[in-house]
Design a protein around this nucleic acid. Structure first.
Lengths: 142, 142
DNA sequence: TAAATCGGTTGGTATTACGAATTAAACTAG
DNA sequence: CTAGTTTAATTCGTAATACCAACCGATTTA
């Protein structure tokens, strides 16, 4: 049994979208407190455990290269990231977190955990495990 | 049994954030195809089943009133929403979807379902029900 | 009825984002 | 090995988004 009616599916889609907005709002608010836009925050998140070329970072974030130039310019000016040359390709530029950027990223993402966990407290431990597994399955699909 | 380690929690937080970005990306892409920014798309979504004053809509979307003026201006110019006077308070302005706006909203949100459902297909029907229940619980918390 | 408050708009500024054009480096023919 | 092409990033111009501060009318309160 466990039929999926149209309404059930719609309800699930809606819940997903709303969850996305809630999470995004939390991220945005925390970012704002540190003068980081959502995009800058995402960039820090991506660079937390990666060093990428401009183009790689752009496609990671789903942005145009031209958009990234300015983004990295500003983050660079604030001392959060650093541009360096790629020894293998003199056209390429490698972007990585600076020490200060790494520090800020750690701080910000600790805050994110801190603020999202109470939300998750509505679920019991077993349910949290299950949710994690379900989301992991969902994210693995493409 | 079913202990929640720090890593488990971090993994869940991460999965939530990533899910948020994936869903947001889908919404953004579909919006783009209809010349709608994510914000405009959200506005249509909110107005689908509500008519609100400017300030109400602003707090719904988490934006400043001043931001909303321009947003509504542009949507108005495109014939998607309409401003009307509030009979109870001559200062207030009520925003609602136009016929054309409602049509576009319906079309767009059908597309959203269409594109998110394949993602959900990675989960069986029982798991979908469970995910829906978990997200509902999570969204009900504040 | 005078003052304070509320609801929206306007004006100014910064950020974000895109596309098109540009420069430099690295391939790929011929 | 040079000529032409592709690739990596930047620059430029433009539009939308978003904020704050200042403002105008309408409304409420004192």
């Amino acid at each position: 049994m466990s039929q999926q009616s149209r309404d059930d599916q719609d309800a699930l889609i809606d819940a997903l979208a709303q969850t996305a907005f809630v999470v995004t709002a939390v991220l945005g608010r925390i970012g704002l407190e540190h003068d980081l836009s959502l995009t800058q925050l995402r960039m820090l998140g991506v660079l937390r455990d990666r060093r990428l070329r401009m183009s790689g970072l752009a496609s990671f974030l789903g942005l145009e290269k031209s958009t990234l130039s300015g983004l990295v310019d500003r983050a660079c000016a604030r001392g959060l990231v650093e541009r360096s040359a790629d020894p293998d390709d003199r056209r390429a530029v490698i972007v990585a977190l600076s020490a200060r950027g790494a520090e800020l990223a750690a701080e910000v993402f600790a805050e994110v955990s801190e603020q999202l966990l109470p939300l998750l407290a509505a679920l019991g431990p077993a349910e949290q495990s299950r949710l994690r597994a379900l989301l992991a399955g969902l994210l693995a699909s493409p």
